[in-house]
């Protein structure tokens, strides 16, 4: 039981990080970046390839998230900005971010081959006993990173001017421009940040998943579920709480129902949560589809 909780929390931290990454970019641009999972994947692949090439595995751990960060910015300029520039309320980003993910995934599969490759264990082979349960160093690292990410983001959002201008950009980009904010830079920075977080999530989980070009889709889905359960659209930190809950539930389903249950059980939970509190468990109100400001004529 305790073991299940622990491993649930650690995988949940990964889902939560991904959910936060999705929430951050959604928060500012109202776009769900369906290529977020591919950023996690590219961080893993870069790190794996570097360590395969004989470099110190920690070099890969440093460079992988950086690659994800670059990819995040690229996804903004290729898949999001051209669409929002034409029509802020278009749903075209659904297609373009998915298309971007598809391109990245298959380009990587073509470049390094579609097979899975090994990943250095990092801290994964340092077991730590907690009563009956065992937790690895890597899992502890994941939990620490998650806690740090939540605290840092809350600080940026609430206490810094950048966070406030991000909120302003989210609410009314044209007005944000009119007070002198370069909304393009603000948005690009948020996408970079969300790419970075997804990349960090990637190198944290990689010792368990190994490196495969098609990892992104699954994690994207779970990150999305974490965001929606928690109410990430309102506040990125909520996505982390949603992720932790999701992780525990998925592990629990696997051990108490059957080994396939994590394929569908979390979604069942999501439906129930949304029926009870449509705005997510940890939210107070729903800014998702706020009334559109009338266009001045």
């Amino acid at each position: 039981m305790f073991q299940m909780m622990l491993s649930g929390l650690t995988i949940g931290a990964i889902y939560g990080l991904l959910g936060m990454a999705l929430s951050i970019s959604f928060y500012v641009t109202r776009v769900i970046n369906f290529a977020q999972g591919q950023m996690l994947m590219i961080a893993i692949i870069v790190a794996a390839c570097l360590s395969e090439a004989g470099f110190n595995p920690w070099l890969g751990v440093a460079l992988g998230p950086l690659a994800a960060c670059v990819l995040g910015v690229a996804s903004y300029f290729i898949g999001v900005r051209p669409i929002l520039k034409a029509d802020r309320f278009s749903f075209g980003w659904m297609v373009s971010t998915l298309g971007f993910g598809l391109v990245v995934e298959n380009a990587i599969a073509y470049a390094v081959g579609p097979r899975s490759r090994g990943f250095p264990p990092l801290l994964n082979d340092i077991p730590i006993r907690l009563g009956d349960a065992v937790i690895t160093g890597q899992q502890i690292l994941a939990l620490l990173v998650a806690a740090f990410a939540v605290a840092a983001l809350e600080f940026v959002r609430k206490r810094t001017l950048f966070g406030k201008v991000g909120m302003a950009t989210a609410a009314d980009p044209e007005m944000a421009e009119s007070i002198g904010a370069n909304t393009m830079i603000v948005s690009a920075v948020t996408f970079a940040l969300s790419g970075l977080i997804a990349g960090i999530a990637g190198v944290l989980i990689a010792p368990r998943t190994f490196a495969n070009p098609y990892l992104g889709g699954t994690f994207n889905t779970f990150g999305f579920v974490a965001m929606m359960i928690g109410g990430g659209p309102e506040n990125p930190a909520n996505a982390m709480y949603g992720g932790l809950l999701l992780g525990v539930l998925a592990e629990g389903a696997n051990s108490y129902i059957n080994s396939q249950a994590s394929d569908w059980f979390p979604f069942l939970i999501l439906v129930l949560v949304l029926i009870v509190t449509p705005r997510g468990l940890f939210s107070t109100s729903n800014p998702l589809f706020r009334p559109r400001p009338a266009r001045p004529a």
Binding site: M167, D172, M175, S178, P293, P296
Partner: peptide, 14 residues
């Protein structure tokens, strides 16, 4: 230049 636009357009949740 700075503008006080039609409909005010404040950042409502701040």
């Amino acid at each position: 230049a700075a503008i006080a636009p039609e409909g005010r357009r404040l950042f409502a949740d701040q």
